[in-house]
Simulated scan of single mutants.
Amino acid sequence: MTLNIPNILTLLRLILIPFFLVFYYLPWQYAYMTAAGIFVLASFTDALDGYLARRLNQTTPFGAFLDPVVDKVMVASALVVLVQSYEGSIWMTIAAIIMIGREIVISALREWMAELGKRSSVAVSWIGKFKTAAQMMAITGLITHYNEWVINVSMVMLYVATALTLWSMLVYLKAAWKDLVAHG
Rank of each mutant, 00 (worst) to 15 (best):
A114E: 11
W112P: 00
W91H: 05
S89Q: 08
A95P: 00
S85H: 14
M99V: 05
I104Q: 01
A108W: 05
E111I: 02
M99Y: 01
M92R: 03
I100A: 15
I94E: 05
M99S: 09
I98F: 11
E103P: 10
Y86M: 12
K118G: 01
M92F: 10
I90M: 13
I97F: 15
A108M: 14
G88C: 14
K118T: 00
W112K: 08
I100H: 04
A114G: 14
E115P: 00
E103L: 09
Y86L: 11
I94K: 07
M113Q: 13
A114W: 01
A123W: 02
R119H: 01
A108D: 08
S85F: 05
S121M: 13
V105R: 11
I98M: 13
S107W: 08
R102W: 01
A114H: 02
A96P: 06
A95W: 05
G101Q: 05
I90T: 14
A108R: 11
L116K: 14
S107C: 01
Y86C: 11
G88D: 10
A95Y: 02
T93V: 06
A123I: 00
Q84I: 10
Y86E: 06
I104S: 06
R102Y: 00
R110L: 09
T93F: 09
I94C: 10
S89M: 11
E115D: 08
A123V: 02
G117D: 03
A96N: 08
I94H: 04
G88F: 13
S120A: 12
I100L: 10
S89V: 00
S85Q: 09
L116Q: 15
A114Q: 14
W91C: 04
Y86G: 15
R119G: 15
W91R: 00
A95D: 13
Q84Y: 14
M99G: 05
L116E: 10
G101P: 12
S107H: 08
M99H: 02
I98S: 04
K118F: 00
Q84A: 13
E103W: 09
S121T: 15
W112C: 00
A108G: 15
L116T: 08
G117C: 08
E103I: 07
S120G: 02
M92E: 05
S107A: 11
L109P: 13
W91A: 14
A96T: 07
V105Q: 12
A96H: 06
V122W: 07
A123P: 12
E111H: 07
G117M: 09
S85N: 12
A114L: 09
